[in-house]
Amino acid sequence: MRKYIIHSIFLFSVIAIIVSCQNQETIDLQNYMSNGKDIYKAKCQNCHGENGEGLGQLAPPLTDSVFLIANKNRLACIIKNGVNETLVIHGKEYREKMPAFPELADIDVAQVMVYVTNSFGNKQGFVPYNQVSTQLQNCK
């Protein structure tokens, strides 16, 4: 009986160790998601809405996964520098200017970008900070 208990405890601890061993990327993703959400609330939600629904024709929704994937490498620059051109989202034209957010550090841009591209029905996965940093250095 005693042997049986010891065996089951051992087995249980092995399982616990395996479960807690998430890979680094999943932890980073969760980290970015939670920080990104705070930045989103402070800087983006005014116009783009709590659920990324946008505001009439004034601010586009963030639910167009096709647009987000097609413009994957531009997203960081858009977040930081704003937009002053017509964008077609869900087949509709949006002409209003998006303001720049120069106060956002590269890591903030990365976190909010990961949040947006993995919320509101989007699922693009993780983008590390250094990749976003490179994109930001090459903004047009």
């Binding site: 939600q45 005014n46 116009c47 809405g49 505001l55 009439g56 004034l58 601010a59 303001p99």
Partner: peptide
Amino acid sequence: CTTICPTMHRNLM
């Protein structure tokens, strides 16, 4: 206005 007005008018809508 990019700060409070969009939220105000979203709610007023």
